[in-house]
């Protein structure tokens, strides 16, 4: 049985697609068969972050409408052969998805892959509900900032009440907190919620902390998921997240600010 993992957040712009891309690629690099699905119908972007935007021919909605087979729509990643991407459509309206047809596609994919990563759109509309409905696990992507934390809590409510697992009274979706754009220096200065603060408020287990990093923009510029930048702090932090998803115990890194040397302390900078 494939593990279906939704990457969700409520709020937009917190790093869902960046995280989906990095985690999906990381899982595939570890030898797993992974498919990444973009659920943001009308605002496709996962293809761009993955660097395969020019290879999109058919999309998720084409498959649902029977205009293309799954095999025609899936894009094989050029870097890792065990990774595929199912792009969202750019033009169709978002009512194209419903529980029945999404369920069918996920069932077919489940026979071919070990991991199905669903990149959710922002908001709590139909598209986001479809992305989380069939999930076994949820990665709740959150910035240490008031509106993002509040929206994450609302999504936690949806996971607990509107998912397939909730409706059927099955074991609840396994929730993971992924804190992104974390700045230890600002936390130390009392300007940013700390990891512990966010854990306290949301009370779900911590999967990872991704530091605010210039590597993320560089990665999206190039269409190379940031986990491939193995020298960068964000790349290393995503690698830790992948290892934890695979059941390893990994210490959390990048939680404290780098100490300034004596010269920069005196002279500034």
């Amino acid at each position: 049985m494939a593990r279906i993992i939704v990457v969700t957040s409520g709020k937009g712009g917190v790093g869902k697609t960046t995280s989906s891309a990095a985690i999906g690629l990381g899982l595939a690099l570890k030898g797993n068969k992974v498919v990444l699905i973009d659920f943001d119908i009308g605002l496709r972007n996962l293809d761009l972050i993955m660097g395969c935007e020019r290879r999109v021919v058919y999309d998720f909605v084409n498959v649902i409408n029977g205009e293309a087979t799954l095999n025609q729509a899936l894009i094989k990643d050029k870097r890792v052969s065990s990774l595929s991407i199912l792009p969202a459509s750019q033009t169709r309206d978002k009512d194209a998805l419903n529980k029945e047809n999404v369920g069918k596609v996920l069932e077919d994919l489940g026979k071919l892959y070990d991991y199905i990563i669903c990149d959710s759109p922002a908001g709590i509309e139909a598209g986001a509900m479809m992305a989380l409905y069939y999930a076994d696990e949820a990665i709740v992507t959150t910035n240490p900032e008031v509106s993002s934390v509040r929206d994450s809590d609302r999504i936690l409510g949806m996971l607990a009440s509107r998912s397939r697992r909730a409706e059927l009274g099955l074991e609840p979706i396994k929730e993971h907190l992924l804190l992104t754009r974390y700045s230890p220096k600002r936390v130390e200065e009392g300007e940013m919620l700390s990891v512990e603060d966010v854990e306290d408020i949301l009370s779900i287990p911590l999967l990872g902390v991704i530091p605010e990093s210039q590597a993320v923009l560089k990665a999206s510029n190039a269409g190379e998921p940031v986990i491939l930048d193995t020298e960068s702090d964000a790349g290393k932090a995503y690698q830790d997240v992948v290892d934890r998803l695979l059941g390893e115990t990994v210490d959390f890194r990048f939680l404290v600010a780098e100490k300034k040397g004596i010269f920069s302390r005196i002279f500034g900078g």
Binding site: G157, L193, S194, D197, D200, L202
Partner: peptide, 24 residues
């Protein structure tokens, strides 16, 4: 030590989140 903006944020969030969970 002044009251930091982060601790204000935490306090506000704890109140609003608890309230919203109740009404849910």
């Amino acid at each position: 030590k002044q009251v930091t903006t982060a601790s204000k944020a935490k306090e506000r969030l704890q109140i609003i989140v608890a309230h919203e969970r109740n009404s849910r």
